[in-house]
Simulated assay, not measured.
Amino acid sequence: MNFQPLLDAPIAVQIHVAAVLPAAVLGAYILLNRKGTPRHRLLGKIWMMLMVMTSLSSFFIHEINLFHGFSPIHLLSISVLVGAWRAITAARAKNIRAHKAAVIGMYFGGIVIAGLFTLLPGRIMNAVVFSGGPNWVMMLTFAAIAAMFILHRRLASGGT
C-alpha cells in the first residue's frame, strides 16, 4: 500500500475516504450483530452520519467528468441520500422490513459496489492499494470481507 496518492488527492477525496472507511467497518459490524438494542441505535446513527458525509463529499469530487463535472457514480450518491431518508423514516415508523432493506441497499450499493469501482485502474484508491508496498494487506482485507459476507449469509439463513 502507498498512501501518497491519497495524501496528494484533493481535500474532498480525503474527506470522502475518511468517512467511508469507518462506515464500511462499522456497517459490517452493525449488520452482523444484534438489532434493536441501544448500541445498535447509537452505532446506526453514527453510521448514517458517515454515509451522508460520504455521499455529500462525493459531489465535490469530479475526477470522472461526463456531465458538467458529474458522472453516473453521483447517481449512487443521490440514492444513498434517499436511502438514508428512507431508513430513518422507516425506523421511526417501526417498519423494520423497509429499514433493513434501505440499510442493506446503502451498504452493498454505497460501500461494496462503489468501493469495487474505486479499485479500477487509474483511480486514486487503485494507486493506494496496488502500488508500493505489501499486497498481503489487500489479501487480508479481502479475506476479512469474504469472511464477514459468509458469516452474514450463514446467520441470515439460520445456520450456526
Rank of each mutant, 00 (worst) to 15 (best):
A90V: 00
N95G: 04
M106I: 08
P38Y: 02
P72Q: 03
I104A: 11
T37S: 13
A28K: 01
H99T: 05
S57F: 04
Y29A: 05
F59E: 08
S58P: 11
M49W: 05
L50V: 06
I30P: 13
A98S: 14
G36W: 02
I73Q: 12
A28M: 06
H40R: 03
F67G: 10
L75F: 11
G110W: 03
K35L: 07
T54E: 11
T89Q: 14
I64Y: 01
A87F: 02
I30Q: 01
N65V: 04
L42V: 13
R92V: 04
A102N: 03
G110E: 08
A101W: 04
R39T: 15
G109F: 05
S77R: 00
R34M: 05
M49P: 01
M53E: 11
A84M: 00
V80A: 10
K45D: 09
A84I: 00
I61Q: 09
L81W: 02
R39E: 15
R92T: 07
G69S: 07
A84Y: 06
Y29R: 13
N33Q: 13
I73Y: 11
Y29L: 11
G110C: 09
G27A: 10
G110F: 04
K35T: 09
L42G: 06
A91L: 04
I96P: 11
R34G: 04
L81V: 11
A84R: 00
I46K: 04
T37Y: 00
F59I: 05
G110R: 02
S77M: 07
S58F: 01
N95V: 03
A28T: 14
K100Q: 14
I73F: 14
N95R: 13
K94W: 04
I73K: 14
S77D: 08
G44E: 02
I88C: 05
L81G: 09
A91D: 08
L32W: 06
S57P: 12
S79V: 08
A28D: 01
E63Y: 13
E63C: 02
H99K: 05
I64F: 05
I78G: 13
M48S: 07
I111G: 06
T89W: 00
F60K: 14
F67L: 15
L56R: 09
S79G: 06
A28H: 01
I96E: 08
I104E: 14
K35A: 12
T37D: 02
L50I: 00
I111K: 06
M106C: 08
Y107L: 09
G27M: 04
S77C: 07
T54M: 14
F60P: 13
V52G: 08
R39H: 12
L76I: 14
S71T: 05
W47R: 08
L75K: 02
I78A: 14
I61Y: 01
I64D: 13
F67Y: 15
S71L: 00
I64C: 01
S55F: 00
I111S: 03
A90N: 06
F67V: 15
Y107Q: 10
N33I: 04
A91E: 10
I73D: 09
M48T: 15
I46M: 03
M49V: 15
R34N: 10
A87K: 03
I46D: 07
M53K: 00
M49F: 12
L56Y: 01
G69P: 05
A98E: 12
W85E: 08
L50E: 10
A98D: 09
S71A: 15
W47T: 02
K45T: 10
R97C: 03
L50C: 06
